[in-house]
Amino acid sequence: MSPNSKEGPGPDWVLEVSGLGVTLGRNKILENVNLTVRRGHIHALIGPNGAGKTTLMRSILGGMPHTGTIRFKFYGDGTIGYVPQFLDFDRAVPITVFDFIRLMLQDFPLFLSFKRGKREMIRKILEVTECDHLMDRMMGGLSGGEFRRVLLAQAVHPVPEILLLDEPASNMDEVGTNQFERLLLELRKKHDLSILMVGHDIRRILALCDHVTAINRTVIFDGKPDELRDPGKVAELFGLTTGADDLLGGAA
């Protein structure tokens, strides 16, 4: 049993995906995908490369034409927090962390506002993920770990009813990953967050989550992370003959 697991007694859910299909051109990217994210759970989404994890995430965010239904059950204003896998932007664009957060918080054109008061507010937002000291750094100059923490800071302000997290496949060192996971768990505890996260490091994500759905175009496994601790099971799911031990980081 994962140390962070939280047995939800009630059937209360925050996101329900049913019969979801996505077709691009002649390719079926996703087919008949069903999953339910319980309120307060960390729900992991795993699968081999090209399995459609990011496409599923995009469909949930409303950026993909799809069939089937995606329903949310919100009690508040329905804020969705999103941490993208990466931001594809020109590193030379002179945008600071301060600017980046501010773009999201105000409509008044950023280049016309000269108020100093905003700094304190944005510092508080960044403090939550231990990156307030990065405020005046360029977005393009951040390390992988710093970048993730800035993205997490914006995703939890305002506190979302569901947090969608797309883990990067690479570009993160061990220290950065540990810090990110610690912050994520702290935030989850503090705000009772519901989280759906795409993960690439299966060993780490199994240790973190309450529930796991594996997809490869369609759902191939849905259950408790404990059931996936067996490398044989993972190999079977991912269609591997060898290498499942590597996927599990040799920890099984």
Binding site: R58, L61, G62, G63, I80, G81, Y82, P84, L87, D88, F89, I95, F100, R102, L103, M104, Q106, D107, F108, P109, L110, F111, L164
Partner: peptide, 18 residues
Amino acid sequence: LTYNRVMLSSFNPVLSKA
């Protein structure tokens, strides 16, 4: 009127959608 929003969606359309 649209500068902040245009800038944010240039950075990441999916994020701005969220």
